[in-house]
Structure formats: structure tokens, C-alpha cells
């Protein structure tokens, strides 16, 4: 058991160097991970001003940074994720064109985001310019990843080389696969703003990616960053996703600015999917903790590791 775990740990070169050998013999085939997340932050860099009802005085990037630091210090293994629509909503976007938003996300330590419809509001070239600005900054945090598996970027090569369909991150005892899906452009993004980017069925796009993550990458946890919306009139939304795409553990959602206090739990063919979304404008930070128990421990009837707050 320990040796198998050791091999799994070696799967990612970065993780192997980060995990001391002691962990190889001591670590059980289990681990825990905290997902911290936002959605639809919409350039709300400052807290909401007066006249915004219950949102007045809430949000603000400088506070979010503090909260993230505190939580990450307390929880150990964690990922900081976002479900898109970083752009558009305050003068900060009009003046700084999304560049500042992405730079601040890197400073806060985001690991990955996906693209929402509003991230195309200034067109593909401006989106790429904002990504470049974030990548070019001098900061100890690595640039974060842009993840989507249902857009076809073939006609937009500069954007294509910055996007990936999925990402795998390994922590002691937990291997996490992250993918992302976006809402259809029709009626939401004017054609000249998504030149070269096509949209495909998100469920059909997700299925092979989730299968690859589970069967080839052998991840323990599959996370989808979704900008489909929590509940929509059409065929695609986060509530319907688990029935169409089994094997997803968590959907970090956006687009509908839905305020949920806790995730919606939906049964699916391979277990359960937690669908979460935390409003908009950075007024909340979502948190989902997962405990993962692998292989033999499970077979011998072991219980899953408790997750303390």
C-alpha cells in the first residue's frame, strides 16, 4: 500500500520533489484537499459601494487576498479556482481592460480559471492581451491556468496556446483533475468578439475528458469549472450536468450569479456531484473540502478520512 502510494506520488515530477521520502512510507492511501473558489467577480476590485442593498460594503480584492491566505495557511493542500466572468462590471474593467483583474488573481494565488461570456467582451485580442499582462508580471506566484474543453480555439491561435482542456495537480494522497466548460456564444457574445472560437456541446466535450482524467491520469477527484449557469432554460446547466457526465465530484459554477450557502448534492452514476456557486462580485469565497480514500483501504472496509474545519 505504501509503495503504491509512493509510485502515485512520483507521478508528477514537481510533487515528487516536493514530497519528502518520509511521506512515501508514512502517508496512508488517503488525503484531503480544500477547494477555494469564486465566480463572476466582474471587475469588482473594490468593495461594493453604498446603494447596493445587502451587497453594500461587501467584497474587495484586498480582503479576499487576506481570507485566502488565512484559509490556505490553515488547510494545507488547497486549490484556488474561478468559474469565469472576471471581466466587465466596474470602471476598473473599462480603464484597465481586464489586465489588472488577471494580475490580481495571480497575486492572490489562483491556480486556474475558465472563460465566461463576458471575458470576450473586448474581443479575443484584448483577452489575450490581459492573459499576457498577467503572465509577464514579475511575481513569485506562477501564472494561473485557463481551462476549457468545449471551445474550439483552432481559429484563434494566440488564445489556443494559452488554453488547456484540463489540468492535473497532485498533492500527498490526492490527485485532482480540473477541466472547464463555457456557455454558448449565441445571443451572449457578438460574433466579432469571439472570432476564431467555436462552441461545442459541453456534455459531449466533458465525457472523454472526465474519462481520460479518471482512467488514464487516475485522478481521485474531478472538478469542473463551469460557466454554463446553475439552472437554465436550455439543455445545458450545472444541475443537469451530473446526469449527463458521470464521474464529476465537484462543479464550481458561475454565470447565473446564484447565491448558494452550501453546494447542491446530486447523485450520479459513479457517486455524487457537488454543484456550488457563490453569487458574484467577490462578495463570497466558496470552500469545499474533500477527503479521498484510495484502493486497498477502501477494499478492506476502511472509513474515509474525516475532514475537520
Amino acid at each position: 500500500m505504501e509503495r503504491r502510494d509512493f509510485i502515485a506520488t512520483l507521478g508528477a515530477a514537481a510533487a515528487a520533489s516536493a514530497v519528502p521520502l518520509r511521506a512515501a512510507s508514512a502517508a496512508p492511501a488517503s488525503g484531503r484537499i480544500t477547494l477555494l473558489h469564486t465566480n463572476d467577480t466582474h471587475s469588482h476590485i473594490e468593495p461594493f459601494g453604498p446603494g447596493n442593498g445587502t451587497l453594500t460594503g461587501r467584497g474587495g480584492v484586498a480582503r479576499r487576498a487576506t481570507l485566502i491566505k488565512q484559509l490556505r495557511a490553515a488547510t494545507g493542500a488547497s486549490l484556488l479556482l474561478d468559474a469565469g466572468d472576471t471581466f466587465q462590471g466596474t470602471p476598473y474593467f473599462n480603464l484597465y481592460k481586464g489586465r489588472l483583474d488577471y494580475r490580481l488573481m495571480r497575486m492572490m494565488g489562483y491556480d486556474a480559471t475558465t472563460l465566461g461570456n463576458h471575458d470576450f467582451d473586448n474581443g479575443v485580442d484584448m483577452l489575450v492581451a490581459a492573459m499576457e499582462s498577467m503572465e509577464a508580471m514579475n511575481h513569485p506566484n506562477a501564472p494561473f491556468a485557463f481551462i476549457n474543453c468545449n471551445f474550439d480555439f483552432k481559429g484563434a491561435p494566440h488564445l489556443a496556446k494559452r488554453m488547456r482542456p484540463y489540468m492535473v495537480r497532485e498533492f500527498p494522497g490526492v490527485k485532482v483533475g480540473i477541466t472547464g466548460v463555457g456557455v454558448a456564444f449565441a445571443g451572449l457574445v457578438s460574433p466579432q468578439n469571439h472570432v476564431g472560437v467555436g462552441w461545442r456541446d459541453p456534455y459531449e466535450s466533458l465525457r472523454p475528458v472526465v474519462k481520460h482524467l479518471r482512467e488514464t491520469e487516475k485522478v481521485d477527484l474531478v472538478v469542473v469549472l463551469s460557466h454554463l449557469g446553475y439552472q437554465m432554460d436550455g439543455a445545458y446547466d450545472d444541475l443537469r450536468l451530473p446526469a449527463h457526465v458521470p464521474g464529476v465530484d465537484a462543479v464550481i459554477g458561475g454565470h447565473t450569479h446564484t447565491f448558494l450557502d452550501v453546494p447542491t448534492r446530486l447523485p450520479q452514476a459513479l457517486g455524487e456531484t457537488l454543484v456550488f456557486q457563490v453569487g458574484f462580485g467577490g462578495v463570497n469565497l466558496g470552500r469545499m473540502d474533500f477527503a479521498v480514500t484510495r484502493g486497498e483501504v477502501r477494499a478492506s472496509g476502511g472509513t474515509s478520512m474525516p475532514v475537520e474545519s
Partner: peptide, 19 residues
């Protein structure tokens, strides 16, 4: 053993106000 899927259990889940 590796083919046995991991057992995943959600622990603390919450929306934390940024205020």
C-alpha cells in the same frame, strides 16, 4: 488496487462572506 476508484467524501462546505 489502483483500479478501485477512490472514495471521495465531502467535508466542510460553505460560502464564506468577504466583508
Amino acid at each position: 488496487a489502483a483500479q478501485a476508484p477512490a472514495k471521495v467524501k465531502a467535508g466542510l462546505v460553505q460560502s464564506i462572506p468577504v466583508d
